[in-house]
Design a protein around this nucleic acid. Structure first.
Lengths: 196, 196
DNA sequence: ATTATCTATAGATCTATAGATAATGC
DNA sequence: ATTATCTATAGATCTATAGATAATGC
């Protein structure tokens, strides 16, 4: 009977976003149901529409843009913290490891196909600006500083991003520690596979 | 009226597998419906149960194991074709580019969570044996031949696989040609980012 | 008065089963 | 007789809307 306003004013929406972020970043758009989210938050499905009148898609987009903004800040900060290419890449890898696993291909390939086509360019732009661009910028500066050979920045940025996203799996499926996986990945990116 | 046996004996099942493979490898498990598959094949949903009595999950598992077997063959063949590490990696990258995009994280993270838990180990094993193992083997041989420094093979294999899967995106989103993306990626893997 | 929830329910979609029907091979 | 489809339909699940209800802030 009691319409439990369990959370303080404005808090409810934050909780919804937080729970939805956990789910949308680890599972695909269609496998996450409003039922799942509402149950985890502790409210009824219909209540989600109060905060997000546009329903599931609006909630997903809010989560995605919020999450991308966090990545952008985190990656730009990581790039500024490191003094050379190796350090910058290490800080970035640490940032990826500090957050829950980001399934990059899931968002850019699978999820993107399930939302309203008119919203796709915005999502692609958001992912590009927040993930690819900080890396391209860092790689360009590294090349200008003579720390990197002249590769196509976008291609390398994609490879680096996917490698970093996979760090969580490396730690999970191999017997390696996260520190070891991190140094191995950074060394491989900077020095290559061939013997030094 | 006419129960159209459009395909020759045994052909129907092959068509279903082919269509299902196209869909399951590019979209997530829950977004692919039996309706989609049946429509694309040109039969009714109920007819799918004749070939796959276990329904959607059985069809998905059949597709996945079939697809993994093809990757295993393709990658092992690629490794044998190349004479040194750089050539082997190039042949492997060409194999990935020759097939439709494989969304690795989609399968190992997202799809895996949606199937019957008792089937998961089998899927993980299939993906490991077909994708990771051929790379680990090649990297071990390269190290033994003095062509590679001593990295953790599983960690590097994951990085290489994700990088190769991403080649399709690199070509799609950047202005780069597939040849250029391929050589850049292989060069980066072998020589590293730092100037030679 | 506003904010944030709830109940109830419509309507769409999806998986799966039962049993009928037609075409093929022997 | 076997193979491969079909029709019809049950039952589950999911998104979304309408309108009621309670708690909070002024």
């Amino acid at each position: 009977m009691a319409a439990k306003t369990q959370f303080a004013y404005g808090e409810g929406k934050e909780r919804v976003l937080h729970v939805a972020e956990e789910m949308f970043l680890s599972r695909c758009y269609s496998s996450v149901t409003l039922r799942d989210i509402a149950a985890e938050v502790g409210i009824k499905e219909a209540s989600l529409y109060y905060h997000f009148p546009g329903g599931k898609e609006e909630l997903f987009l809010a989560v995605l843009h919020r999450s991308m903004a966090a990545y952008r800040t985190g990656l730009e900060h990581a790039a500024n913290e490191g003094r050379d290419l190796r350090e910058k890449l290490t800080k970035m890898a640490l940032w990826f490891l500090s957050r829950r696993q980001l399934n990059l291909q899931l968002i850019t390939d699978s999820d993107l196909a399930e939302i309203d086509p008119s919203k796709r360019p915005e999502v692609e732009r958001s992912a590009y600006e927040s993930l690819v661009k900080p890396l391209v910028k860092m790689l360009s500066e590294a090349e200008a500083a003579g720390e990197s050979a002249s590769y196509n920045k976008e291609v390398v940025a994609g490879a680096v991003l996917n490698t970093m996203c996979d760090l969580h799996n490396a730690v999970r499926y191999s017997t390696v520690t996260s520190e070891e996986a991190l140094t191995d990945v950074v060394d491989m990116l900077v020095d290559g596979l061939r013997p030094r």
